[in-house]
Amino acid sequence: MARENPGWGYRRVHGELLGLGHNVAASTVWSILKQAGINPSPQRVDRSWAAFLKAQSSAIVATDLFHIDTVFLRRWFVLFFINHGTRRVHIAGITRHPTSLWITQQARNYLMDLGDHAKSIKFLIRDRGAYFTDSFDAVFQAIGVHVLPTLPRVPRMNAIAERWIGSCRREATDRILITGERHLRLVISEYAKHYNQHRPHRSLGQRPPDLLTKPEPPTTTHHHRQHSRPSTRSTRRPHPRIHAGRIG
């Protein structure tokens, strides 16, 4: 019971055993767990936020909004979603005025683009920006997704999304003078394509998100035959008896 339920301490296991009709003392349960090398305390499980993200990564999607200033001092906002398990990023939209109605519509479009894959999402992480309203949350809650707002001034709770923003700035937008909306859309879409299809990720075994399948190792047994060749570097003459025999 303790191995299958890491959050149970010896008291919980004792109660479950009593419910099953096994009349044993709590101290006996404690001793059995100790002898088996299992900590009787229920705190043997890491309950940190990082542990939760790692355990549920395949079912978590994060979203965020960041701004880009053009050379003409106009500010544009980019809304994106990123899957924690695959690290695949989806650019939802670009606008100068991120209103609640606009962001809610981008959330609907995102789920429509996912199709049946939307069923795999169980949690959505977002910050507490005023543009993420109840109508935005309702789009995801309608399909059974739990919306998890981050704590105020704790950007590490949305670290995956924040890291992508940093990568996008360092590798793309900070290296180019953006002239306008059309130029920004081109730069962001090209970088997202590069990020998903080519850029290696340490968490994915140095593979990009779209190439998660491990390539088969090369083999020489199917298409190539190996042949041994006598060394031509030796200058020693063969023994005379070798030529005396019959060949064939």
Results as ranks from 00 to 15, higher is better:
6 P>S: 00
14 H>R: 03
14 H>V: 00
15 G>P: 12
17 L>Y: 05
19 G>L: 09
22 H>L: 06
22 H>A: 05
26 A>N: 03
27 S>K: 03
32 I>V: 11
36 A>E: 11
37 G>F: 03
43 Q>I: 01
44 R>P: 05
44 R>D: 10
45 V>Q: 13
47 R>M: 12
48 S>P: 14
48 S>H: 13
48 S>G: 12
58 S>M: 03
58 S>H: 09
59 A>T: 15
62 A>S: 15
64 D>N: 07
64 D>A: 08
67 H>C: 08
73 L>P: 06
74 R>P: 09
75 R>K: 11
78 V>L: 07
78 V>M: 07
80 F>P: 15
80 F>W: 07
83 N>D: 15
87 R>V: 05
88 R>F: 02
92 A>D: 08
93 G>P: 12
96 R>S: 07
100 S>H: 07
106 Q>P: 05
107 A>M: 08
107 A>H: 09
108 R>V: 14
111 L>D: 12
112 M>Q: 13
114 L>E: 09
115 G>H: 01
116 D>G: 00
122 K>T: 07
123 F>I: 10
125 I>A: 07
128 R>I: 09
128 R>E: 07
129 G>Y: 06
140 F>D: 13
141 Q>N: 15
141 Q>D: 04
145 V>H: 06
146 H>D: 15
146 H>A: 13
146 H>G: 04
169 R>G: 04
174 D>H: 10
175 R>M: 13
176 I>G: 01
176 I>W: 11
180 G>N: 13
185 R>T: 09
189 S>T: 13
195 Y>N: 07
196 N>M: 02
204 L>G: 06
205 G>H: 04
206 Q>A: 07
207 R>T: 06
209 P>H: 00
209 P>G: 00
210 D>L: 01
212 L>E: 04
212 L>T: 07
213 T>P: 00
215 P>T: 04
215 P>N: 02
216 E>N: 04
221 T>L: 06
221 T>R: 11
223 H>L: 12
224 H>A: 05
226 Q>E: 15
229 R>N: 09
234 S>T: 15
234 S>K: 02
237 R>C: 08
238 P>C: 04
238 P>N: 11
238 P>K: 01
239 H>Q: 10
241 R>G: 03
244 A>P: 02
244 A>T: 12
248 G>E: 01
